[in-house]
Design a protein around this nucleic acid. Sequence first.
DNA 1: GTCATTTGACCATA
DNA 2: TATGGTCAAATGAC
Length: 327
Amino acid sequence: MESQWQENSLSDLKMLIKELNCGQEFTHKLRDVIKQSLVNGDMNMLAENLVGQIMGSFCKTLSILNTSNSNEDSQIPMVAVFPCPKDGRTSPEDSTGSCKKSSAKDRIGCNKKRKISAKTVKETSTLADDGHVWRKYGQKQILDAPYPRHYYRCTNKFDQGCEAIKQVQRIQDNPPQFRTIYQGHHTCTTYPTASQILLDSSTDYENSSILLSFNTKDNHYYHPYNFPTFFSTKKETKEENSPSFFYPNNNQNQISTSDYILPANDYWTPATETSGNVMATALSSASDNVDYISSESVTSTHNLEMEMEMEMEMMAGIDFDDLPFEF
DNA sequence: GTCATTTGACCATA
DNA sequence: TATGGTCAAATGAC
């Protein structure tokens, strides 16, 4: 009975991914159709933004589904997104009072150690607000470490299935130094505010962020949540509730109009072909290993495109070579 | 009463 | 088997 259900769920998941891939393709074609219907071939900003947002949603959803699928080979795919319901509650935080202490036997099959691929390490002298709301779920004294490690998860884990977690550990006392390890990426819709981003941009970006150069006019990068904003040449939009993920490079005395600092703890998804130009692509946190991201690591557009393609293939289970369109 | 944190126990992985 | 990551009851703050 249960295995039948699991089988069906896996089958459904595959169909879901297939349908999402189709949706992605249709969106791509829709954009082309809109462009062709225009006299000069240029989409207005609103249309471009909408298409971009739809494409970003597809990328994000496929990423979530595939993470679930690959991490839980023998389990129900949704388990990875909505963690195992131990005693029938919808979440461990369901404070209905009906919660019973689960025995060790009840927890069998519930993986305690996750296999999240994307890791980003950030070392700072202060514990600056990173713009997301976290909830602490554990603390552990680590062997040979003078300070305990603190474990946090995104507060939207259970209501939105956001899998982002972070670990914070003091690594030095005087001067204070903290190591924050971000794992997974935010799939929740609670975005950092502009003020929070500005606050965060004052922290140590030299070691934790990506410097993207836009010197080549045809090369563009976007963030899945907000990538359309970069189509404008604005460096920073400061409106509340309209976060921009592009920051002036504070580490340089002279700021080039084509240089931007991007937050390191998020994924970057590939830009798509637009206005006859194939955009370059970028991604952070791309490897299974801890990834110290520095400005030096993303100066090669060519490498970025390759890395991005590999990462997107891995996340979405898509072979880009088989797609009817180019990324 | 509600929600976040603490902390000991459990469990997967190396 | 040791270690690190997560769970969940207990506790505290509001």
